[in-house]
């Protein structure tokens, strides 16, 4: 039987995490009655992630424009540079890179914060004060992650395609015509692409927030346990993002 124990352990973990998610979802309507708590968390997961998202978005747009130009110019299709940048960003890189950065920046912080609250008896102290920590601590953080991700992914994409990213390199540096940069993007992209990006980002946001609060809440109440929860939040979220991205892309391609 002992060789089965890794399997049963991971099944148990999955079951526990799923029940935890259901518990959180059950408290979400109540959490909206106290928007202040959500606003506070939007600050720490959203506003504090803004700089890293803006900078990374710009650089990824610039790199994509440089690389794309080198290839496209061989086919005499340099004017399609905008399309290349915009489609790669909106369909793939925008949501995925934002999610990976979000997992590293906000997910790990979330897990560490909740883990530390547990290790210092703050969660159990709340319970003894007849306050449900899931409602008071977990749900607002979960909701904030869910709201912040699509917004961050949109900001990332806007930066990557727009003035500071691909546009700066393509139009200002490499001399692609400004009009054709935008009009080609206009022709190739549809509202559907944007909607797909927002769906992807929201799903990733859900996955990261879920993993982070679960890892934090179930961390061993020691400094080692907290550090392990932080690490596994980043590792598990990153893998989950890439796997989910494959599934979602497959669905969206039909």
């Amino acid at each position: 039987m002992s060789f089965l124990s890794p399997l049963t352990d991971s099944l148990r973990g999955l079951g526990r995490a799923s029940l935890f998610l259901l518990t959180i979802i059950a408290t979400i309507p109540g959490a909206f009655l106290r928007p202040r708590l959500i606003v506070q968390q939007l600050y720490s997961v959203g506003v504090l992630s803004l700089i890293i998202i803006v900078i990374s978005g710009s650089f990824i747009g610039m790199v994509l424009a440089l690389q794309g130009y080198r290839t496209l110019v061989n086919f005499g299709a340099a004017s399609s540079l905008g399309v290349l940048v915009a489609l790669s960003i909106v369909r793939e890189l925008g949501p995925v890179v934002t999610a990976l950065l979000f997992a590293g920046r906000a997910g790990s912080a979330l897990a560490a914060e909740i883990g530390l609250m547990k290790a210092t008896d703050q969660l159990s102290g709340m319970e003894m004060m007849a306050v449900d920590p899931i409602k008071r601590v977990i749900a607002p953080r979960f909701i904030a992650g869910l709201i912040a991700m699509p917004l961050l992914a949109s900001i990332f994409s806007m930066m990557a395609i727009g003035v500071a990213g691909g546009h700066a390199i393509g139009v200002e540096l490499l001399g692609v015509d400004d009009g054709s940069y935008w009009s080609q993007i206009n022709q190739a992209m549809h509202g559907r692409d944007i909607a797909d990006m927002l769906i992807k980002a929201t799903v990733f946001g859900l996955a990261i927030s879920w993993i982070a609060v679960y890892q934090g809440y179930h961390a061993a109440p020691t400094s080692e346990g907290v550090s392990r929860a932080t690490t596994s939040t980043v590792v598990v979220s990153s893998l989950a993002i890439l796997a989910l991205d494959f599934v979602l892309t497959a669905f969206m391609f039909h």
Binding site: M117, T120, Q122, G125, M126, A130
Partner: peptide, 16 residues
């Protein structure tokens, strides 16, 4: 029931 009892944790368990 818990509103009728207070528990003082060793660490204080103040919300940081």
């Amino acid at each position: 029931l818990r509103k009728r009892m207070g528990l003082l944790f060793q660490s204080g368990a103040l919300l940081t």
